[in-house]
């Protein structure tokens, strides 16, 4: 013989009085307040700026993510077609430099009387 549904319900309803120990809620509240303070302290750190953004993104529904992704794709596509391609870069013409190398034998023929004011040789 099976117990009836009422008898099952009566057995189950006896559990409605399951409660924690007497001091449980005092300790619970103490821990709860401690956790809240820790969380508030963590939020006051630099992450306080990031947290609202994180929260906002976490609340964005999947459909909005799809819209956002579509919008980003469209922006990238527009940018791709609007930016001109094949533009030549005009550079300034360079000035030719005249390099004259003094032959070694001419150095031997320096005239000491032709010294400049600062003592350098004048060629």
């Amino acid at each position: 013989m099976k117990p009836s549904v009422e008898q099952i319900s009566n057995l189950l309803s006896q559990r409605s009085n399951l409660r924690p120990e007497e001091d449980y809620w005092q300790d619970f509240l103490r821990e709860f307040h401690h956790n809240q303070r820790m969380e508030a302290a963590a939020k006051s750190a630099p992450s306080a700026f990031v947290e609202p953004l994180r929260s906002w993104f976490s609340e964005v529904s999947p459909s909005k993510w799809a819209y956002g992704a579509g919008l980003a794709y469209a922006t990238a596509a527009i940018a791709f077609f609007l930016v001109p391609r094949g533009v030549e870069i005009n550079t300034m013409p360079s000035t030719p430099v005249n390099h004259q190398v003094v032959p070694a034998h001419s150095l031997e023929q320096l005239d000491p009387s032709s010294e400049g004011y600062a003592g350098e040789q004048v060629f």
Binding site: R15, S16, N17, L18, R19, P20, W25, F28, L29, F32
Partner: peptide
């Protein structure tokens, strides 16, 4: 809020513990 925890605490304890 503490008072709300105390009001609903036992009921929710029973629910979660069950």
């Amino acid at each position: 809020f503490d008072a709300l925890i105390l009001k609903y605490g036992d009921k929710l304890f029973g629910l979660v513990y069950s």
